[in-house]
Design a binder for these strands. Structure first.
Length: 581
RNA sequence: GCGCCUGUAGCUCAGCUGGAUAGAGCGUUGGACUCCGACUCCAAAGGUCGCAGAUUCGAAUUCUGUCAGGCGUACCA
């Protein structure tokens, strides 16, 4: 679990701290101040491998010019027995330090010894986190939004896990409530139309228009004949809905599997009703004084709860007034609970019954009106939704065909489903493509996707991996195996390109921590693309086969470590790392 | 109206906790294997960081205002 970048940065701070004490003792700098600052990696390596700004931030406290402070610190700096070989003052007062061979060797040693676990850290150790994603409506096939959400959720979960958290992936099956009633009504209409003719039954106005509904009704008819036509409508609808879900859910599972997503748990909304948990949760809110009755319905005092939170965070009553907060119905006048009520119960279950410290939901941006409400409901239950429930809102995907937007609606019947997409575009390309920052809108042009061969950076990265594999295989045949790091002299990796590549390998642990902290797994794409780029540059400029034995082996080792890191990263994104292409 | 998200090169996007001359890919133009995989590499051209103020040694980054686009604002889910 080594993080050589972090360790080097702390080392810089310690070195500067020691230098300050020595300089103060020698009377070169005023005593009694504590020098703090940040250490960063300069864009331009002409400015060293690490740059510290301690002299600049300390200028006021020491009443001296930053540049003078930097010089005094450097004069009193002890670099022997550190990773660094030189330090110099630069620019307005930066202290720039340069790494020596030992550090580069230590990076390769970490990659070698940790292998597939390289990049893991303990930053989130002890945290039990749930990532709930996709949770597509089981009444129809999954669409492009689900495709994006699937990659985001799955990759985010992986990144959190590698940052040390205990992560569970969950799919919430909305197999209850109003949309299931609509599903049943639609199936019933199609079924009766098959038996009695198109015009015999009017299709429900808010029904699901899709071809898949007709298909399910047809399947049911083929299996059961017209036996259900004479049954009581309620019984018939229940049977049809069950039939539909029993076919849709396994298909979803299979599509997701093909997409390389597997869940730890499929959680059924209906179970919350079966056990009375929804009612109990609403009752609890009532006992807490957070509901009221009006027009025959039960309402949650959303505006009151959110208002209290905003007051605490420093908003004025006037500002809150302007937001025109509204309350929400939990139980309708007809006696049925709303989706909101069951969602509150579901989230309460995640925290109270299953003990997650943190819960992350990946939602489409069209659900964002729901975010504040569900958090506030958790607050009302004393579950601190504000801090423990995070919603990743993902902007929707515009599906394009021939430059025109295709509307993604289940009801138009024209939507391109996830399985259609995977028929047209390789899984590797789709997973890579959808692993982008959640909050940007994106267009997905099917025509473009098909010819996404050489244009897609995923192939660039995969090519680097294949190249490394074949290099290792070829040289092994010639009797050159990569030695263990302990057997090679890292000083032989002396060119700028080799060192740039090693520095990039060293950055993985930090990169994964940042991706986890920002809920932005797309950082892995950019990171590994840069690994591949630096490898290609190195490979192009540094011959391996014809080099002197020590150099050859050191470079071979570097290639092997690079391949290992690429393999780890592609694994996180869910993309294959081929040995040849 | 109100709220959330987004405006950086022709296109798609990076840009860390405010740091040094704002970067990459694609596209365009030109170049590099008799050589470990040319699905690669090198180079050039391309910028009012939406706009206007404020904060400070220093702003694409923070704050305020403003313009543009997306989404939301149901006894739907």
């Amino acid at each position: 679990m080594a993080n050589l970048v972090e360790e080097a940065k702390s080392s810089v701070c310690a070195i500067i701290d020691a230098a300050y004490k020595k300089a103060a003792a020698a009377g070169e700098l005023p005593e009694g101040a504590s020098l703090t600052g940040t250490v960063e990696i300069p864009k331009d390596t002409a400015n060293g491998d690490f740059a510290a700004n301690h002299a600049m931030t300390g200028a006021k406290a020491l009443h001296m010019a930053p540049r003078k402070i930097a010089e005094a610190l450097i004069n009193n700096m002890e670099l022997s027995n550190t990773w660094f070989v030189s330090a110099e003052a630069a620019g307005p007062g930066f202290i720039n330090l340069r790494l020596g061979p030992k550090w580069y060797g230590d990076v390769l040693a970490a990659v070698e010894s940790e292998g597939g676990d390289y990049g893991r850290s303990a930053g989130l150790a002890g945290q039990k986190i749930m990532v709930e994603f996709v949770s597509a409506n089981p009444t129809g096939p999954m669409h492009m939004g689900n495709a994006r959400g699937g990659v985001l959720g799955d990759t985010l979960a992986e990144v959190l896990s590698r940052a040390g958290a205990e992560v569970q992936r969950e799919f919430y099956v909305n197999d209850a409530g109003n949309q299931i009633a609509k599903f049943a009504n639609s199936l019933e209409a199609r079924y009766l139309q098959i038996i009695n003719g198109e015009d015999s039954v009017e299709f429900p106005e808010d029904g699901y228009q899709g071809e898949d509904i007709k298909e399910l009704a047809r399947l049911y008819y083929e299996e059961k004949g017209d036996s259900a036509a004479t049954k009581l409508p309620a019984e018939r609808r229940d049977e049809l809905a069950k039939f539909g879900l029993d076919r849709n859910l396994p298909k979803m599972r299979a599509d997701l599997e093909r997409y390389k997503i597997s869940y730890d748990k499929w959680f059924y909304e209906s179970s919350l009703y079966d056990t009375g948990y929804v009612r109990e949760t609403v009752d609890k809110l009532t006992q807490l004084g957070r509901t009221y009755s009006k027009d025959g319905a039960i309402w949650l005092k959303t505006s009151e709860i959110i208002g209290e939170n905003l007051l605490k965070s420093g908003k004025t009553p006037q500002e809150i007034e302007k937001l025109e907060l509204k309350d929400d119905v939990l139980r309708r006048a007809n006696g049925f609970y709303t989706y909101f009520a069951s969602d509150i119960a579901y989230h309460r279950n995640k925290f109270e019954e299953r003990g997650f410290d943190r819960v992350i939901n990946v939602w489409g941006a069209d659900h964002h009106g729901h975010v504040a409400r569900i958090k506030c409901a958790m607050d009302a239950l004393g579950l601190d939704g504000e801090h423990r429930l995070d919603i990743v809102l993902m902007q929707l995907v515009n599906l394009m065909r021939d430059g025109e937007v295709v509307r993604m609606s289940k009801r138009t019947g024209k939507a391109i489903s996830l399985s259609d997409l995977l028929d047209e575009v390789p899984v590797d390309a789709v997973r890579w493509f959808f692993n982008t920052k959640p909050d940007t809108q994106m267009d997905f042009d099917l025509g473009l996707a098909v010819r996404q061969d050489s244009e897609n950076p995923v192939y660039y990265v995969q090519y680097a991996h294949a190249r490394i594999c074949s290099l290792l295989a070829n040289l092994a045949e010639e009797g050159h195996a990569a030695p263990s790091v302990s057997e090679l002299d890292p000083a032989l990796l002396a060119t700028e390109l080799e060192r740039e590549l090693i520095k990039q390998l060293a950055a993985l642990p930090d990169e994964l921590l940042r991706a986890a902290a920002a809920y932005d797994p797309s950082r892995v794409n950019r990171y590994v693309t840069e690994v591949a780029a630096r490898f290609h540059k190195f490979y192009n400029a540094c011959r391996i086969r014809d080099a002197e034995k020590g150099v050859l082996e050191a470079r071979l080792k570097l290639a092997e470590c690079t391949g290992s890191v690429i393999n780890v990263c592609l694994g996180i994104v869910g993309v294959t790392a081929p040995n040849k292409m």
